[in-house]
Computed example of a mutant assay.
Amino acid sequence: MDVLGDVLAAMRVGRPYAGRTKCWAPWGVQFPANNSACCHVVLQGTCHLIPPHGAPLTLGVGDVLFTAPGHGHVLADRPGSPLIDFRPARDDASLITELNIPGPGAATEMLCVCYSFDDIRTHPLLANLPPTVHLPARAGHHSALRATVDLIGDELQCPRVGTEAILAPLVDMLLLYVLRAWVNEQSGHTATGWAAALTDPAIATALHHIHQRPEHSWTVEELATRAGVSRAAFAKRFTTVVGQPPLAYLTWWRMTTAARLLRGTDALLPTVAERSGYGSEYAFAKAFKREYGIPPGRYRRQRQTNW
């Protein structure tokens, strides 16, 4: 089980937005601080990221910018340009849209993809992300990411038979490649939080087993054995890096798994309980209500209606 991919799949809601944006100076687009994460890639020209605080960041051709959920930001040709709110007008059944801002000045073209995440129960990995991740264009770096950008750009520039079906996995791949690049750049002795968790051999092994078999009756000792370290060292390291003790994270992930099954499948409640590590429907319902505030049946009805 790939933990990074599993977390993103569990937290994603709704359909992503993907489009090519072409703007002529002066222009500016304000992205709200909501439950969306965005990937922006500059295809032509230059622009500036204007954060709520701090100095603007210049983005050039080939630069990739990721913005985490909950962090608003502004992209503009320069500080002080007039702004419009990002409100993509598209058919809800379509993945593709376009944004064009006319003007007399130089043109900037970008590839923009936005993903919505569950803001009711944010995974600590997403909460641990920095507000922005900037991956400058550098020859020989992130070749898989660059290839994915090229494929998405080609499909958006000239939609044809099969474009929607092709884009769906490509936009997911883009997000994974960006976050993988962030994890890799954070790896080493200075890595903290989930960047460290995903690259620490012992912690990553334990997370792998928890995500692969959340229904198993894991103990700290068994997870430590799988990770190849002592029980005491494992428990301390896991709690420090992940932010929760091993069994607390196991329970958290079980409830996340249950919610995912409730809103995304028609599995019966006993099946959801079993796959979430509970021996009885009653014990599961009690734990679920304690975590989410409502019984699992009502959660299913509300979330399948709204999502």
Rank of each mutant, 00 (worst) to 15 (best):
G162W: 12
P245K: 12
P69L: 05
H40G: 05
H216S: 11
F284N: 07
V242T: 07
H48S: 12
K286Q: 10
P214L: 05
A168V: 00
R78V: 02
A232N: 11
G14Y: 06
H209C: 06
C114D: 01
K236I: 01
L247C: 08
R146I: 00
G264D: 04
H211N: 11
M110I: 01
V133C: 14
H53P: 00
V242D: 03
P214Q: 04
G28H: 09
Y249G: 02
H48P: 01
Q44M: 12
G297F: 15
L129Q: 03
F117H: 07
P136K: 08
R263P: 00
F86M: 06
G228P: 01
L269G: 03
T257G: 11
P136F: 03
E281F: 01
G188I: 10
L57R: 15
D77E: 02
H208F: 10
R301C: 10
E291Y: 07
R90Q: 07
G72L: 14
P56W: 05
E291S: 12
D92A: 12
A106E: 15
A168H: 09
S217W: 06
L247K: 13
P102A: 15
K236R: 15
E291K: 12
Q157I: 09
D77G: 12
C158E: 06
M173I: 00
N35P: 07
A233C: 13
P69K: 10
D92H: 09
V241D: 03
V74W: 00
A259I: 02
A197P: 04
A283Y: 01
D92C: 01
L43G: 05
L65D: 01
H209S: 01
R254T: 00
P295A: 14
P159I: 11
I96Q: 07
L135A: 09
R301V: 11
K286E: 12
D172R: 12
L43T: 06
D91N: 14
I84F: 13
T271W: 02
D172F: 00
D150N: 11
A139W: 08
A10V: 11
V113I: 09
T240H: 13
R121M: 07
A55M: 12
V74R: 06
G70N: 13
S36I: 06
H189E: 10
I294S: 13
P159R: 06
A196C: 09
W252G: 01
T58W: 05
T97W: 14
R231Q: 13
L65P: 02
C47F: 01
E291M: 04
A93G: 11
H208D: 02
W194E: 09
T148Y: 09
S217I: 04
R20W: 06
Y177E: 15
G60W: 11
R303L: 11
S94H: 10
H134D: 02
V241M: 02
